[in-house]
Write a protein that binds this DNA or RNA. Sequence first.
DNA 1: CGGGGACATATTGTATGCAATTAAAGTCTT
DNA 2: AAGACTTTAATTGCATACAATATGTCCCCG
Lengths: 223, 223
Amino acid sequence: MIVLDDRADDRTRADRLVGDVTDGILSGLFAPGDRLDEASLAERYGVSRTPVREALRRLASSGLVETRPRRGTVVASLTPERLAELFGAMAELEATCARLCALSMSPVERRRLEDHHAAMETLVSAEDVDGFVSANLAFHTQIYAGAHNGHLAEIAAGLRTRLMPYRRAQFRMAGRLPRSHAEHGAVVSAILAADAGAAHGAMLRHVSLVEDSFERLALRRPR
Amino acid sequence: MIVLDDRADDRTRADRLVGDVTDGILSGLFAPGDRLDEASLAERYGVSRTPVREALRRLASSGLVETRPRRGTVVASLTPERLAELFGAMAELEATCARLCALSMSPVERRRLEDHHAAMETLVSAEDVDGFVSANLAFHTQIYAGAHNGHLAEIAAGLRTRLMPYRRAQFRMAGRLPRSHAEHGAVVSAILAADAGAAHGAMLRHVSLVEDSFERLALRRPR
DNA sequence: CGGGGACATATTGTATGCAATTAAAGTCTT
DNA sequence: AAGACTTTAATTGCATACAATATGTCCCCG
């Protein structure tokens, strides 16, 4: 039997739609406030309304879109206040993870974190923004994992993806790379020294500074 | 003209099912590990499979049930490790909120918190467990609100609800009421003194102790 | 007597049709 | 001409039918 492109994996259509629509939102194809009409999405992706509905419901529970009964779904548009809350929550969560890392990371984990941070130095000198962005994600993921609390890690990672679209241009700001790297250094040192308070503070400062740079960006290009 | 309770019932069937099935799980009607078959649920609640599916998906995203593609849905059974993670995450979140309270509660909020705590003294002396449980929820809710971060508050409140069934019997343990009240006292003092570190520590200890008492309970009555 | 495989059954995933509700356009009255 | 009511179009909510897949059973073979 000839199997067309449809049978690549056992993921359901709704699963794939969640990914596709998420990408659409993150890429700007669907802008905040845009109406996500079930029939149009179904046609666009070549499926029926049923899996589209399921995907939209899941996106709603993750906060990427907002659905009101019988009134349809729109891409979530975050008010500046709400956005600040999300950034603040993420900063606190990451700081908490860093604190737990300082307390409970295994020697191997500490070593890997140190190595990873050292390796990022190269990316900074080369001004390899894309490489840094990707390594940065890995760095923070290591922090989540080092907290040894899967649920905290889930929450933090979820928040990070959700805030991704609002952070894209950040690392392209002049001098942001070396600064981020230096801040990472403070976090790593504190964790290696098992200084919980310092790790918390350093991470809180780091993520909050990223937030600041976002806000300056947002002010320059409102809406 | 006559627009009294327009909010009467715009809830969808799926909305109601989420509530019903949640109650069923929390009340023990559906035990962890039980299979939640779409057709049976549809018949039981007198609806079609469509809203049942939607409700199950939402419950899955809240963590109350687990769904695997083409393999159906079962009531989530938390392993002891997973449960410990959830309690740990809640402890950290509440501690973070307490820390933020110490830093940023308004004078009015501090006053209200102090008053509320003082009023709980009466419930302790009277050994009014139900009253204390309810006042306890209000106490922690004030802490969430005092952090001035709606998203953190949402996460913390969600976790608290999810863990509710595992905490029910706790306050009935001998001597738990006065002890909890004393721990609250430490938190309140630290917040009133604007001592962020102490507030964090006191809340972390408080919630972790509650967790301990749960674990002793769970060990005594396994499954 | 045990194991592997084909078949049967049950359950989920998807599509489609209909009903209910909302938002909007148009009409009528004052 | 402005506002309110009626009507109309569009979209969501729900039900049902069909398709695809996992699970359980039975038989055959070793």
